[in-house]
Design a protein around this nucleic acid. Sequence first.
DNA 1: ATGGTTGCCCAGCAA
Length: 264
Amino acid sequence: MKIATWNINGVKARIANLCEWLKSSAPDIVCLQEIKSEDATFPRLEIETLGYHVETYGQKGFNGVALLSKMKPDEVNRGLPDGDGDEQSRFIEGVFSVKGGALRVCSLYLPNGNPPDDPVKYPYKLAWMERLKTFAESRLALEEPLILAGDYNVIPEPYDCHDPLVWAGDALFLPQTREAFRRLEHLGFVDAVRATTDETKLYSFWDYQAGAWQKNNGIRIDHLLLSPEATDRFRAAQIEKHVRTWEKPSDHVPVSGWFDFEAA
DNA sequence: ATGGTTGCCCAGCAA
């Protein structure tokens, strides 16, 4: 079973790319971020025609996440379940029946947090990371396979970007950001790409500006974090870099993982 | 140091 995450940067502008990728890459479950669409205007028909169930948690203009899946989810939860009244749509969880039990897959879009001296933005990011950690702790207690997939807006290590000096003061790379990410990981998660290869300078995002793609000036901020029970079934991950060469690309590419799960 | 680009949907913000 192939499970992928992709920050698509506007699903309506990217629908042709998305359909082409679904056909050529054939993922079983897809976590989308930055759909930048309300639920009512999400182009679901084109995707359903390709054999996918569509679950969205949209918002007008900004943010928004979705789950596409060949299996119909048994349960879908929108927003982090802490009742914090977050008006930004950044989290959706689906529960799927696989042989042996339940598989939980979450699509998350962690706040960017820039500029870090803004009175609201960086504290919101750090608070959101803490809320995600609390959620993860509660789900890990279930001892089920769980995949936290998405755009974390976190560069975990200096070798996850082209030039660490450029990112030194950025909300994606500040020590507090990386420490919060490590606290989440150290609950027991495995970074799927990092578990696949020791290769450094692997990126999932290249800015549209200043020829970043042409210079391979990228960052790795899209991650699949695997619970112990998901890691048991994990084979390998891949960054689908070729998608960045397509016409009208997103600034992010899909990151995919292969697992031994089978539909129940 | 500045400017460089894209998507939302038409003004300016977010990234």
